[in-house]
Amino acid sequence: MSVVRKLLFPFSFLYALIVRVRNLMYDYGIFKSVTYDFPLICVGNLSVGGTGKTPMIEYLIRLLKDEHKVASLSRGYKRKTKGFLLADPDTRMEDIGDEPFQYHHKYNNIRVAVDADRVNGISELMKLQDPPEVILLDDAFQHRRVKAGLNIMLTVFDELYTDDWMLPMGNLRDSRKESARADIIIVTKCPADFSPEQKERVLRKIKPEKGQKVFFTGIRYEKEVISGDRSLSFDSLTEKNFSLVTGIARPSYLVKYLKSRGLKFEHLNFNDHHHFSDKEIDELNKKEMIITTEKDYVRLSGRVDRLYYLPIKVDFLFGEEQEFTTLVAGFIKDKSGVENPAFNSN
């Protein structure tokens, strides 16, 4: 930890005190949480950004969309609109934010909505003529006004919440004790050679509560980069002069992967959710070729030429994907009484 961050300890202490009081208000019922009688799944974390929420939301969308009417509800970070907004064919990225737009762009058989007020957002979704059967709450673990039926909390393998500190000295925006509210904890971005011994060490750090299940996942990068309906194999990239452009919280995993494939490139790194200025776009258009993340692609598509993205997916380690699927299926059946036949075929 840097000296500067250590000097921020008094501010972290004050922030932790404020967060603790707020959580106690909910714990003792002074602040009220709203519960729901239909499947509401929350995916979130205790820290700020970069834990892999977007790939996990997409994993759940793919798992559920063929048998259930699914909606995602996000805050819509850095969007240029206010209040509740349901995405439609005319919706732009600026209207709902990059991550919701990514869901909307990729999955045409789900509903995608944004609202900073999650209670109002859920209410508006359920007022629709054909309301969703399952709602996925994106990044809402700390929003305690809503009490989800299934809480999935993510933490990064090499930056576990158990080893972190509260903002601004660390990256935690909520107390480590709040991990007890999670039904499922997923350790994300585990290395490819993650061993059973490492798994046991992490479990000893987390010390899961009774009834909590801990899963371990890695990132699976696809074997080609994509631009619209075109694609290029990784083998062809060794002959290309390309720039890597990232505007995500933790680009180091992608940089390391590309270098491990023997690729040489310049890395242009921007802040998470960065909105690219016209001047920056002009500079990017001078590049021979650009590879970026899927989240950055939705912000740059149509503005930058010769633009490709590298798709990623969640990989469950130790053969635990079916167990995770069974837990999600059981929750939906208990809440809705509807069994997903697709789960039984796995």
Rank of each mutant, 00 (worst) to 15 (best):
K78S: 14
K147A: 08
T238N: 12
R144H: 06
M153R: 04
R20S: 14
E94Y: 09
G149L: 00
L160A: 06
D183N: 14
K106S: 08
R75Y: 04
I226E: 09
D115N: 13
I332N: 10
P10F: 02
N23K: 08
D158L: 02
G49D: 11
H104T: 11
A148M: 02
S277C: 02
I219N: 07
T292S: 05
S175P: 02
Y253K: 13
P191C: 09
I96S: 01
R62H: 10
S12T: 00
E239L: 06
D235T: 09
F242W: 08
I18Y: 11
L73G: 11
K313Y: 04
L203K: 06
T54F: 03
L317I: 01
N241A: 11
K287P: 10
M1A: 14
A192S: 15
Q102H: 09
L307A: 07
L154Y: 02
I185V: 14
Q142M: 00
V245H: 13
E294T: 04
Y257R: 13
E94W: 09
Y103F: 15
C42G: 02
K335S: 14
V202H: 04
R176H: 13
D139C: 02
M93D: 01
L258V: 03
T81Q: 09
Y15V: 09
L154Q: 03
F194H: 05
R144D: 03
W165Y: 15
S179D: 07
N285A: 06
I281M: 05
A140P: 08
V255A: 10
C190R: 05
S233D: 15
S336L: 07
N151T: 07
T293Y: 12
I206D: 10
Y103E: 03
R176S: 15
Y77H: 12
F9T: 12
K82C: 10
E133G: 13
E323T: 06
E323R: 13
H105C: 08
S123F: 15
L60A: 05
I332D: 13
L73Q: 12
V48K: 12
V202F: 00
F215H: 11
K286L: 06
L46W: 05
D95S: 12
E280Q: 15
V156H: 14
Y161C: 12
G218E: 14
D88A: 10
A87L: 08
G52V: 02
P132H: 04
G319H: 10
S74P: 11
V156S: 13
S301Y: 15
K279I: 12
H104Y: 15
N340A: 05
Y107E: 06
N271Y: 07
A113P: 03
G44D: 12
